[in-house]
Amino acid sequence: MLDIYEFSAVFPSGTEIYSQNVQHTIRSNRRTLGGSLFFDKLLAQLHVKSVSESRPPSANRGYLYPPSKDGNLEELHDKIVSAEIADHYKQSLLYYLLKDCTALDDEEAAETFAKKSHLSHKYWIVIQGLWNLDHLQFEAALEYLTHPSLLPAFPEDILRVLIDHGKLANKHLPLAYYNAVRPPLTNPDLQKSYVTYLAHLSLIQAYFFIETQPVQDHKSLFELLIDDALQHSRSDGSSNVVDELINLPLTAEQEAWFEEYLLEGKGRTYHAARDTVVARRLALGKYAEAIEAGQQLSGRRFNDINWDGIKDMVATSLGSRVEVDSVFNVAEI
């Protein structure tokens, strides 16, 4: 069995040190991922000091990873093997470093180490996935990190990275990861970010997701859903998302939240806030209530339909064109 405590056994003579280009890429990825690689998180979680004793860290400077010279690599190895952690954790961290050697064209280094040190398969899978994340290879990372045999590692951090960056490669990656792992979303900001992300995929999907969250969060997340729908509609001129909003299967309580937010709350400042309430009431067949809410409308279009056309339809339903004319009082624009 390979002796992981012996530096030369893990990193044989002639192992290529990290080139300037590789160092720059790793440091750039660290900045992209919010100042912390998943390897940094592993070191911190296992209480392995990740900074050089000879110089304090500043931004990307001072970190032992990526090693900038042979001495840094040996120092990092020493800190890993001398840490008070189980050997399988030490093997996992060293395997990560040898994955970099694979990237440096020594394709056998990592696999040879894993076999000779008898690295557990589940730790091999986790490190593969985290290494891919740190190298911004998001689709490859999910192949490993959603493996059914794994207990999730850093699930909320991973979901955050996929929402912020992974969706640019494939918009369905955050959804796939969430459905496979079910991270708890204890961070309110992450919870809101995921709802917003879902809303961009499908408003109805975001709506049903909110139903799975703690009851005390339902109202604020529902209002976030309304915000996103109206902002999205205004930014890209799409009416589909507003149509989805109007036709959501709301409960009586949610109906009250919907109208309160758009008629009296913060949502009333949106250009189409009152229009949306009127359209919702019309969709539910509440014609008289729609006329009441539409008293303040001033002739603008809603979803490319002039309110005059809506007014005619309501008049036909109520059988009182004169009353509707006097209440809506709108002119074609």
Rank of each mutant, 00 (worst) to 15 (best):
Y123F: 12
N132S: 03
A199G: 07
E223D: 11
T15Q: 09
D308T: 14
V181P: 02
E84S: 13
L159G: 09
A293H: 06
M313L: 12
S58A: 04
Q91L: 07
E259A: 13
T32F: 03
P183F: 00
P66S: 11
E84F: 09
E332T: 09
E108C: 03
K90Q: 13
D189T: 14
D275H: 14
L76Q: 08
A279H: 02
H135L: 00
A86T: 05
D3C: 05
Y207N: 08
L133N: 04
L263I: 13
L203N: 04
A252G: 06
D100G: 02
P214V: 02
Q91P: 00
L119R: 07
Y96Q: 00
D217I: 00
I226F: 02
S68L: 10
L245C: 08
K219T: 01
V330K: 06
Y207R: 11
R274L: 06
I125G: 02
E16L: 09
V161F: 02
W131E: 02
F302C: 11
E332Q: 10
K167I: 00
S233A: 15
S68I: 08
A140Y: 03
S320N: 15
L104K: 06
I305Y: 13
I226C: 11
L162T: 00
N240R: 14
L104G: 04
E84R: 08
S235I: 03
A110H: 05
V322H: 13
V314R: 08
Q91R: 13
P249Q: 10
Q295H: 11
